[in-house]
Amino acid sequence: MEFLQFAFMQRALLAAVLVGVTAPAVGIYLVQRRQALMGDGIGHVAMTGVGLGFLLSTNPVWMATLVAVLGAIAMELIRSYGRTHGDIALALLFYGGMAGGVMLINLAPGGSNANLTSYLFGSLSTVSEGDIVSICLLAAFVVLVTLGLRRQLFAVSQDEEFARVTGLPVRALNLLVAVTAAVTVTVAMRVVGLLLVSALMVVPVAAAQQLARSFRATFVIAVLVGTGVTLAGTITSYYQDVPPGATIVLLAIAVFVLLTALAAPLARRRARAAAPPATEAQACDVAVPPAAAASGSSAGTGTDGDGVRV
């Protein structure tokens, strides 16, 4: 336990706990709406913010937060409006953000890719007092939103169309999730790095899903797994000279594999107790089997292909 005597290690552990709590707390809503990789995209965009921070000699954490928030808002707007070419627009945003970061940091006086590496893959030992203050403030915001509005965010992430008919401010809540995810990315970037942030948002949630039946239990288990692996990874990287970000993510994946193996018999028992679950297909009135045409008996039912998605 001698690592607790070092100030840098105390800061590192505090940052690790905050990341372990906030990343899965936001990630659960992203997973729920099947946007598990959104955190990855925000991480790419945040690189431009880090580059800007170096170029303008301001705090990279705050600059990354600003740019990541703007990027996340742009992504959410692209998602809700531009259905057809949405993924291309997102790709432009992701890679533009990444290239912008590399370019800006090389333009910055005294900047080099070495500075960037600590943001890309995390660098716990360099977390400063100022960073810790920023991280605490940002983490408080994330916890407040993800816990305080959990019912509303659950409803919006579960069924957006239904949520709109309940009169909830769906657009505002969606933007709030995006902004909160962006803030989480910058909270986590010093610990696990921008390239691995998304893993900490998704993997603990995926692990929790193996055991949990309810949203509440998924949330609690995911936060426990997240906190556990960030703490364990940080301590491991103190004793063994290994990069903390990679250690944390590999530990999270190990927990996922372990819980999956444990849960398999449990799932089988539950499956026997209940009917098979419905599939994901949507918006069909009547599924038309491929063989229908051959039988020639479908005439006269009035169900033509329009509007039928099989």
């Binding site: 659960i28 997973v31 729920q32 709406r33 099947r34 598990a36 019912r151 509303q152 659950f154 409803a155 992430s157 579960q158 069924d159 239904f162 949520a163 008919v165 309940t166 009169g167 909830l168 949630v205 899903q209 949990a212 039946r213 309810s214 949203f215 509440r216 239990a217 998924t218 679950p277 419905a278 599939t279 994901e280 297909a281 949507q282 069909c284």
Partner: peptide, 21 residues
Amino acid sequence: TTAAGGVPATVREVVSSGRLS
């Protein structure tokens, strides 16, 4: 065809969201 989302949720949790109006 399904009331489920990307994360497990109980019947009660899903029904509760109807009360948000």
